[in-house]
Design a protein around this nucleic acid. Structure first.
Lengths: 236, 236
DNA sequence: GGACCTGCTGTCAGATTCTGGCAGTAGCGA
DNA sequence: TCGCTACTGCCAGAATCTGACAGCAGGTCC
């Protein structure tokens, strides 16, 4: 196995273990001496991988992905840049910042002439009709990633407010509004919630008992089935 | 210089020369023997780089970018995936396909568990309100990249039609419509054209005499200047 | 056809890099 | 204190890379 391939492997092994792992263990899993492992870790850190080592504990990788060298066509890069620019204009500030960071990382590794092309890329995204949401969608995305319950106040189309505790598993971006899809504990059914009608969002930290992928699949099946509508807007 | 760094260099050198380059020349530019160069080319091709060699001519790199190993955080990947999905739903079919291809390439290099996450990524893009355009925006993007003139028929807001020859340099994606920004030869000024009002698009193949980056800069300066509006919609 | 340019492959000795083991320093927690 | 860990310097052997040479195949030009 080549060294570069081994480095990618190392990141993936670190990704699997969420808890700190000792260098000895990692070296064992990769079939390599511990001295070499330290060298590999140093190389990865030099390449910008967020690996942290603490004496007495082991190594942890901050959540993320390591991409190997990739080749993209002009059109593919244009698509990625345009898409990221669109995200960067979304009202969700953390996601927008992440999009900007991703673009910056890509730009940083390109040679000058290509970076100029990217800076001046002639695909522009128009300004959004702002539809300010009172809540921080970053909290919703974090709750989805961690599969944890969310509490909030919801005001339905009629204006009636209700307190909700839900299991969020998806977030949809429409032209105008953002919609959270979740299992509602109170109603015992799938519901979707417009972000601009939510308030008092609180991350409970309580893990919900299902996998978000499974819920997503079930919800999609409900959408496809004839005569049903999957989730209805949370008015009931 | 490490081998991996040299491989990236090789791609960049190939990118600079648009015409076919002989292996001997490339080897000279990199300070390496021709035998090693052949090995490097083979390695790059093995990694998926679209390099083509023809006996008697030399090597050509299909237009594209080579990205070195990159580390992205969870949020950055989510931003890229969401953005690409949005692009993939645009009516511009070639760009949409490119977005899908880029996503597929990224997915292909991820380990299984991460790919599942990506497939089921819980950030969805809602369907677009379709606003069918009669023209192929791919032609417009190609003309912008190659800095070549475009001819077409434009129907303005009042319904009056006019034949246009323009120097396109940007394409903007708004919520509903796509707008081409160009220098209009007839009017001798910047104009913008809504894609759904264009028809009979023809790529002339004639190169226009300015750099698109310069025009973009000038146009932007016009936007920022107080009391002006940069380009007006092509009604005049 | 013949001269010439190019891509491409095999082989092999020497240069270069990588690797593993050893020794030693330092931080953290019990 | 002890045990566990991260981390560094050193060096000989292993693995890999590199350059040079020889040779084949495919195109271009005269």
């Amino acid at each position: 196995m080549s060294r570069s391939a081994r480095l990618l492997d190392l990141v993936q092994i670190l990704h699997r273990h969420r808890r700190p792992v000792s260098g000895r263990t990692l070296a064992g899993e990769m079939g390599v001496s511990i001295r070499t492992l330290y060298r590999d870790i140093a190389t990865l850190q030099g390449q910008g991988a967020p690996i942290e080592g603490e004496a007495g504990l082991g190594y942890v990788l901050k959540p993320g992905f390591m991409l190997p060298p990739l080749m993209f066509t002009d059109e593919e890069i244009e698509a990625i840049v345009l898409g990221s620019r669109w995200v960067a204009k979304q009202p969700d500030k953390r996601l927008a910042a992440a999009a900007a960071d991703a673009l910056a990382k890509i730009a940083a590794v390109l040679p000058d002439d290509l970076r100029d092309d990217l800076d001046a890329t002639t695909l522009l995204v128009g300004p959004r009709s702002e539809n300010a949401e009172a809540i921080d969608l970053g909290i919703v995305r974090q709750a989805i990633r961690d599969e944890r319950k969310l509490g909030f106040l919801y005001r339905d189309a009629g204006g009636a407010a209700s307190k909700r505790l839900v299991w969020p598993f998806a977030l949809a971006f429409f032209d105008k509004v953002r919609v959270m899809v979740a299992w509602c504990e109170t109603r015992q059914d799938f519901r979707h919630f417009r972000a601009d009608r939510m308030s008092g969002l609180t991350a409970t930290g309580i893990r919900y008992p299902r996998r978000r992928q499974a819920m997503l699949k079930e919800w999609r099946a409900g959408l496809d089935a004839p005569g049903r509508n999957g989730a209805k807007d949370a008015s009931g």
